[in-house]
């Protein structure tokens, strides 16, 4: 049980694929212009990660070491194709909005990284949990960056919710700020880099504060003097 908690904590925070490993930055920065785009790609990536981790973990005994990378890539590609076809069928507008970045999930190093580093060495249950948590951690960062960029850029949240949740969700869009002019840089790739940098800085601040607090709560080590010369009297 403890191991499973550890795996979840690693994926969500301590070894977050986006903020600590800095993997998969290309889709992360390219599609995180709105919350819904970020969430859509996050869900797709999570599904692929879960599927590939489970499959790799199941077949790990039979994959020759020399050709494991091509095998992993083919497994991942199969799942990406499935997800792409599903999105094409059920969320067509989102499929159009994300465009090339859905097939490009194949090249997301976070996924092949988990297959290589974790799933190929661990049993089914931990691997599945690892894939799920890494995916959720990645999605959380995507949604956070998407929210900040959308809010700064156009003053809204959840624009295009109907693309993901169906026509009933069209009213979910919230207009929080009204601008005469859009703050374009937030919507353009440089804004994604800036927001990403600030998020990582924020994470480091939180981590440092936690480490500091832990240090303060530990009792100060007692100093024992060791006599090195002379006689004790």
């Amino acid at each position: 049980m403890n191991q499973l908690l550890d795996i979840s904590w690693l994926g969500l925070w301590k070894n977050n694929p986006a903020m600590v490993q800095l993997l998969g930055l290309c889709p992360l920065l390219a599609v995180s212009s709105t919350v819904i785009n970020g969430l859509g790609l996050g869900i797709a990536t999570t599904l692929v990660l879960l599927g590939s981790n489970v499959t790799v973990s199941l077949v790990r005994q039979w994959i020759p070491k020399e050709i494991r990378i091509p095998v992993f890539v083919m497994i991942i590609a199969a799942f990406v194709t499935t997800v792409q076809l599903l999105m094409n069928a059920y969320t067509y507008d989102l499929y159009l909005a994300l465009g090339i970045f859905i097939p490009l999930i194949v090249t997301n190093c976070a996924i092949i990284g988990r297959a290589e580093a974790f799933a190929s060495k661990n049993a089914l249950l931990p691997s599945a949990l690892d894939g799920l948590m890494m995916g959720v951690g990645f999605s959380l960062v995507l949604v956070a960056i998407g929210a900040i960029r959308e809010l700064l850029g156009q003053g809204t949240l959840l624009v295009g919710a109907e693309n993901l949740f169906g026509p009933a969700a069209a009213g979910m869009t919230i207009q929080l700020l009204e601008f005469d002019q859009e703050f374009l840089i937030a919507l353009l790739p440089p804004g994604a880099f800036l927001v990403m940098g600030f998020l990582i800085a924020l994470k480091n601040i939180v981590d440092n504060a936690a480490a500091e607090r832990q240090k303060r709560h530990q009792p100060a080590p007692t100093i024992e003097r060791v006599r090195v010369s002379g006689n004790a009297e």
Binding site: Q181, F183, L184, I185, A186, P190
Partner: peptide, 10 residues
Amino acid sequence: VLLLISFPVA
């Protein structure tokens, strides 16, 4: 440049 990219018209 931040402004030039963000508000090209102004």
